[in-house]
Design a binder for these strands. Structure first.
Lengths: 209, 209
DNA sequence: TTTATTTTAGTACAATCGTGCAACTAATTC
DNA sequence: GAATTAGTTGCACGATTGTACTAAAATAAA
């Protein structure tokens, strides 16, 4: 196996390499979103990109690195999108509402990417069969909503949460958001505005006193 | 492709065939639950069953039939388990509580099976890339909880739901239950009782006036 | 312009995949 | 007991997979 360390230790990636990596990631996203993880071979991705398979192996150490990149890029973009919106809110109740709204908006605007991420994350396994994405990944995802719930509880607006009930609440919100993605995938003409409104109502009721 | 119709049109399955099919399905469940859908080849399943791959193809028309059987058996068992428990309740509020409790209990008692089902269902695709399990499958799953919510609304115990808000509520409950499965998969020592209690609280608050 | 480096196409390779089937063994039927 | 059916092993086959690599083309540097 050839170790490719140029992007983390050596000099900057060239303009060509950046463009090519980006194209390959984009084609991987589309391929996975359209035919599913199991069918999305490097051959299929290369075909979509109109390049040779060898180009993929030149730019990425292996398939795993390519697929991980899909997830990494998504979460980077997600965080950059969500964080400032939430920080701009004054009250935890507004933060909760904006958290849900912005998540669903982001998903709608990045449909394929989020679908590809869910496929990659749910199918990734370690050599011994465990989930490939570590639990610190989950913690990172859950942190913002857990902070919002904690803040709301401290402000006396939200109900009293124990450590575990706060975790279940946060997980349930995240599960609802991921579930929205699947629903959008099955029904491309879903009324997103209405879905969002209902989710906000639901979680406001369940979070407040 | 050889069409195997013996189990649906011809005479009864023999004792041997029933036992063998059951064993193969069981090994498929374990294989998928342990190493994931993508790695669960017929060879892996046959190895686990200590049989030749040809035995699988003798008893099942193709891999798809075998995997479908995993889901069919799960949902049959799930429905038999859930329905009487809910029917025994007098009020929609009790039904909602028992719905959540019995779902999580059933999942805990059938961990591998439900994990395998989630893997199969989420990865199944039609020839043109669409989700393989049709939307009538979703409707069947959602019907019980939708009925409970409708009943509660008619009794004046639950809040007023529009058609769409009822659907979002039902979906969110199902997403929470599926999310519990994933959590259980990642953390085998999860406190199920506590998780259940929190979920019941959460959805009671969100459903009532 | 020449040389050095990067990038690409094309393909070899071992391994694996699902499907299919011949040959064999075991059990049942006539 | 012979014929038929049920059940199994072992493996062929075409296709595909991810990894790896050579030679050629393209680009950058001297």
């Amino acid at each position: 196996m050839s170790i490719k360390i140029k992007s983390t230790n050596q000099k900057e990636m060239s303009f060509i390499e950046k463009a090519r990596r980006s194209q390959i990631v984009e084609c991987a996203i589309e391929t996975i979103a359209e035919i599913g993880y199991a069918q999305a071979s490097l051959g299929q991705i290369a075909k979509r990109a109109k390049i040779s398979k060898g180009v993929i192996s030149y730019h990425f150490a292996n398939k795993e690195e390519l697929l991980d990149q899909i997830a990494i890029e998504y979460y980077t973009a997600w965080q950059s999108y969500i964080a400032p919106l939430i920080e701009a809110q004054k009250s935890p109740k507004e933060m909760l509402r904006v958290y849900i709204e912005s998540n669903l908006t982001f998903i709608e605007e990045n449909r394929k990417h989020v679908i590809a991420v869910i496929e990659v994350v749910s199918n990734k396994r370690t050599a011994d069969g465990k989930f490939g994405f570590a639990s610190d990944h989950d913690e990172t995802i859950l942190l913002p909503i857990e902070n919002i719930l904690t803040l709301g509880m401290q402000d006396g607006i939200f109900r009293e949460f124990t450590r575990s009930s706060l975790r279940v609440m946060a997980l349930t919100i995240r599960n609802a958001i991921d579930g929205f993605t699947l629903e959008l995938m099955k029904k491309s003409h879903l009324d997103v505005q209405e879905y969002t409104r209902e989710l906000v109502t639901l979680f406001e009721k369940s979070a407040t006193k």
